[in-house]
């Protein structure tokens, strides 16, 4: 599972769950000012991403530091590296 797969998976949550147009999803967009998600929406987003990747997310300092869309991509790239089993499940299509 490479970075592009992760970007696609993250973007699909924004598109399906938050009805944000794909063309708006560029890595340098800020989560609150550009995309309009606040801390409560971030909880919904993380729940959606947790289901998508099948990795339990704990409230961590890294999540709190997320400002841009690219930070979310980086966060999940790192997380997938730490959970190769989840990456395999996702690749086999058994992730949610």
């Amino acid at each position: 599972m490479d970075r592009n797969d992760i970007i696609k998976a993250v973007n699909s949550i924004f598109i399906d769950q938050f009805e944000i147009e794909e063309m708006e999803l560029s890595p340098d967009k800020t989560i609150f000012n550009d995309l309009g998600l606040d801390s409560l929406d971030m909880v919904d987003l993380m729940v959606g991403l947790q289901r998508k990747f099948g990795i339990p997310l704990r409230q961590s300092e890294e999540i709190r530091k997320i400002e841009k869309l690219n930070d979310i991509y980086d966060f999940f790239v790192k997380l997938i590296d730490e959970h190769p089993d989840a990456a395999a499940r996702f690749k086999n299509g058994t992730g949610n």
Partner: peptide, 9 residues
């Protein structure tokens, strides 16, 4: 609206 974000939008 599936969630608060969609509703507010």
């Amino acid at each position: 609206a599936a969630n608060a974000f969609v509703l507010k939008t």
